[in-house]
């Protein structure tokens, strides 16, 4: 879910960079030296996960997993998405350097919200964590598509229809992310619960 270069205006791009640098700053501050390697390798795993195409109806979609990253990393979700999008920007030209701030914000902020809402609850019983896991995955994409729609709309009213269409196109993805996130959380709880409490 990237907005490409040359679309947004200076106000939106600037706001994105300011808020993202605050988020990355707080994330870096809370990142202890001995946890850098762990967080970084987690980011690589998420990066690999986001390259996978999962079948959905007649086509297939890429996973976003920003809800899960948020729940697992807290404020560091900003650092994680920033470096992932930076790499995509300089290597592939997806997204891009001017939109790096706003694209990071659009994905990381929902992740942070998921962390606040669900981080504690996920340690609960099986049914509770299944439901909260689903909500974390669902809300991650739901809020991210609202953020993307809002950044387009703030650039100009002519983007209203585009923004609506982007939101609608992501509704199936929200449910898919919810299901997959719930099941991943379930798996981690069964096999290595300490990952959920590591941060």
């Amino acid at each position: 879910m990237h907005i490409s270069e040359g679309v947004l205006n200076l106000g939106v791009l600037g706001t994105g960079y300011i808020l993202t640098s605050i988020g990355v700053g707080i994330g870096l501050k809370s990142l202890k030296e001995e946890k850098i390697v762990k967080t970084a390798i987690f980011c690589s795993a998420f990066f690999v996960a986001s390259l996978i195409r999962v079948p959905l109806g007649p086509s297939s979609v890429h996973l976003v997993l920003n809800g899960l990253v948020g729940v697992l990393l807290g404020w560091q979700v900003f650092c994680a998405l920033f470096i992932a999008l930076l790499l995509q920007a300089i290597l592939f030209g997806f997204g891009g350097l001017t939109t790096l701030g706003i694209n990071t914000l659009n994905m990381a902020l929902p992740g942070l919200v998921c962390y606040w809402f669900f981080h504690r609850g996920l340690r609960g019983g099986k049914v509770v964590s299944l439901i909260l896991g689903f909500l974390a995955g669902f809300l991650g994409v739901f809020l991210a598509s609202i953020c993307v729609a809002a950044s387009l709309f703030c650039t100009g009213e002519q983007f209203l229809n585009t923004a609506k269409l982007i939101f609608i196109a992501h509704i199936p993805v929200m449910f898919l992310e919810g299901i997959i996130t719930a099941l991943i959380v379930q798996f981690i709880k069964k096999v290595k619960p300490e990952i959920l409490t590591a941060t």
Partner: peptide
Amino acid sequence: PRTNLRTYRTYAYLLGMLFLRSYERSQ
């Protein structure tokens, strides 16, 4: 892989395993 719960469970467990291995590797 198809559009069904079995597929999604398999993907979820594959990814869960990937996260787990990345965690252990990082240590």
